[in-house]
Simulated scan of single mutants.
Amino acid sequence: MFDTVRKTRIIIIDDHPLVSAGLESLLAREEDFEVIGTFASGLAGLAFLAQNQADIVILDISLPDVNGVDLCLKIKSLLPQCDVLALSNHTERMLMMQMLQNGASGYLLKNAPIDEIINGIKDCLKGEMAFSKEVKAIMLKPSVNELGTRPKITKREKQILKLIEEGKTTVAMADLLFVSPLTIETHRRNLMQKFGVKNALELIKISREQLLL
């Protein structure tokens, strides 16, 4: 009777079918890898992980139902030994750092060569951090507005962020939310203080970078 080597169990969480299918096909060529699930939503992937053991989760950041940065933390809380490898189009250094702070074992860009993706997975299995070449270059250049962690904002503040993005005036926001203009201005001021910005344009820019909008 021959001993069989257990394959590395991988799941893919990405809402782009072409990306998931292409990646699954790519990994199928590696005899030591086994894709045990692909999911278009973060919550579906998390539910699967609650019932099944995986060695590596290849995770997109922009998902339809949950922020990939937050999902990474949930996965690591559920399965501490499982490596989370970000595979994304986002090139903001701040997001990369937040993924690492939440337990990710690496960050690859979707435009990375095939061998970088395969080698990234193998690096994770060896206990090493995995970065594509472009990510390494970005990591060496902190952005001016980089924050160590994302500010915690309330549900109401997130509503106001969205309305600011839509170009609504203070009075219009007050009418929509059934509060006084003074209350809106207080929330607006608190948001600017939390993000360390001076105007609405900077506030919207950094909120988008942090996937809060």
Score class of each variant (00 low, 15 high):
L71N: 11
T4S: 13
R9Y: 07
V179I: 15
S77W: 10
E134A: 14
T154P: 11
T91K: 11
T38I: 12
V179R: 09
V171S: 04
T8N: 00
M129Q: 15
F131N: 02
A21E: 13
L147T: 01
T170W: 05
L95P: 03
L201E: 14
S20M: 12
D14H: 14
L201I: 14
S41N: 14
Q101P: 03
L87H: 00
I117L: 12
R208P: 06
E34W: 01
T186C: 13
R189L: 13
E157C: 09
G42M: 07
I160Q: 08
G127P: 08
I13W: 00
F195D: 02
L177C: 14
Q159D: 09
K136W: 00
L63C: 02
D70M: 14
G167K: 12
L18K: 06
N119A: 08
G106A: 07
M94K: 00
E165P: 08
L140W: 06
N111E: 12
D60W: 05
L213W: 05
Q193H: 12
M97K: 06
L26S: 01
T149S: 03
L191M: 04
T154V: 14
R150N: 05
L73A: 15
P17F: 06
A130S: 07
L108S: 07
N111R: 10
V5I: 15
V57Q: 02
L191F: 01
D65T: 10
